[in-house]
């Protein structure tokens, strides 16, 4: 392989995979906002919601 090709191969890997790593680390450091405004709570039951007549 030519020097130029090797440099660009390494550069592609460093920039793109490095970008992925940086994004993952950033997300791990701060997964969610802790200063959200009030409200916006979901009635959350994982997947299948109860049938509608179930009140």
């Amino acid at each position: 392989m030519s020097t130029a090709a090797v440099i660009l191969l390494v550069l592609s890997i460093v920039v793109v995979w490095g970008g992925l790593l940086a994004a993952i680390l950033r997300l791990r450091a701060r997964p969610e906002r802790t200063d959200l405004p009030s409200g916006g709570e979901d009635d959350h039951r994982e997947d299948v919601a109860p049938v509608e007549r179930d009140t």
């Binding site: 191969l9 793109v16 992925l20 994004a23 906002r33 916006g40 979901d42």
Partner: peptide, 27 residues
């Protein structure tokens, strides 16, 4: 996603994962 959910940083992970896979496929 639940309402109180982080959007942009996970979006960066998704976008860079996609490109990372493309580079891998290119190789």
């Amino acid at each position: 996603r639940k309402r109180r959910a982080n959007l942009t940083t996970p979006g960066l992970v998704v976008a860079f994962s996609n490109s990372s896979f493309e580079i891998l496929a290119g190789i």
